[in-house]
Amino acid sequence: MQEEDEQLPPLIQSAYDQEDADEGEAWLISYADMMTLVACFFILMTAFASYDTKSFSKVAKEVKKYFRGANVQDKDEELTELITKIRAITQNREIVDIKSIDNGIEIKFNSEYFFETAEATLKQDMESLLSVMVDVIIDVNEEFIIEAHGHTDSRPLRSRRFKDNWELSAARSVSVIRVFEDNGFAKDQLIAIGYGSSRPEIPDRDESGDFIAKNLSRNRRVILLVKKPSEQLKLGLGHIYQENNQNN
C-alpha cells in the first residue's frame, strides 16, 4: 500500500494557496506602475508642447470636411458665404462690384478710389477696407488664391516714377497684394498682374478719336479675384515686377 500524501491542516493549506496566488499576480503591480509612468510622460509632453495654431486649425478643418463628405457643393457654399460677407462690409459704397466666376468670385474697384492720378500708393481708407476684406476672406477659407489685376486707360502716362501704363498698373496691383501679404496670406497664394491699357472694358475714344471721360474712368480699375485653392494659376507681369523690385 502506498503511503498517503501528508495532508496539511486546512488553515495552513489556505495560507500557502494565497501566497502562490499573490506570486502569480505580482507582475501586475509592476505593469500598472509602468503604465502610470508612461501616461504621466505623455501628459507632460502635451502640457509643454508648442502647437502651430494655424496648421492645427487647417488639419482639423480638413478632417471635419472628410467626415462630413466634403464635395464641390462645399466650395460653392464657401463662395456664396464670401460674397454675402463682402457685400455686407461694402454695402454703402458705390466703388465695388461683386460677381461669381467659374472658380471663384470677382471684385471690381474703380482705381480712382484707390490711388491718386499716376500713383501706386493706396489711399488710407482703401487700405483699411482691404484689411477688413482680408479678415473676411481668411475667416471663410484661408487657402484661397488671391489675384490683383491692375488696369489703366489708354492715355499716355506722365510720371517720373513709372515708364508707362504697364509699370503703373503692375505697381498698383502689387500695392493691393501687399495688404494681403501683410495680413496673413502666404506669398504662394498671391498673384499681382498689370495689364496696362491692353484690356479696356469699353472704348476710350469716340468715333472722331476724342477721349470719352466716363469711359476713361471706367477702364481705370482694380480687379480682385478670389479663387478656389485647387486652381492652377499662372503668374503675370505684376508678379515679375514685384519680384524684381524685391531684388533691387
Rank of each mutant, 00 (worst) to 15 (best):
V72F: 10
N103R: 08
E119H: 10
K99P: 00
Y16S: 02
G24L: 10
F67S: 04
L216D: 15
S230Y: 10
D210P: 01
I146H: 01
N183F: 01
M45G: 11
G69K: 12
F114W: 00
M133T: 12
E78V: 09
A60G: 13
L237W: 06
E127W: 03
G209I: 13
S131V: 08
R218C: 06
K187S: 12
V96M: 07
S169T: 14
G194M: 13
F114V: 00
Y31S: 11
E77S: 11
K85V: 06
A26Q: 04
V132E: 15
E4V: 14
R221W: 00
S230D: 15
S169H: 05
K108M: 07
V132L: 10
A192I: 11
D139H: 13
S159L: 02
N215L: 01
N110M: 01
K85W: 01
Y195E: 11
D182E: 13
V132H: 14
D153P: 04
D17H: 09
R172I: 00
I137G: 13
S111K: 04
K227A: 05
L8W: 14
L225G: 00
F48M: 08
F67W: 05
N219R: 08
L129R: 02
M35A: 07
Y113C: 01
K163F: 15
A32V: 04
T117H: 03
A120M: 01
I146S: 01
A15M: 11
A118H: 08
R87S: 06
L237K: 12
F144L: 02
L44R: 11
E142I: 15
A171I: 02
Q73E: 12
D74P: 00
Y66F: 05
I137Y: 08
L235N: 10
Q246E: 14
I86P: 07
L28P: 00
P200G: 04
L8F: 09
I137W: 03
D102F: 08
I137K: 10
E207T: 14
G196H: 08
E167W: 14
Q7A: 13
N183K: 15
E23T: 05
L225D: 00
F144K: 08
I191Q: 09
K108E: 09
Q73K: 11
V179G: 01
L130S: 02
L28V: 10
I29L: 12
L8R: 15
V72D: 13
I202C: 06
E81M: 09
E143D: 15
F42P: 00
D102T: 15
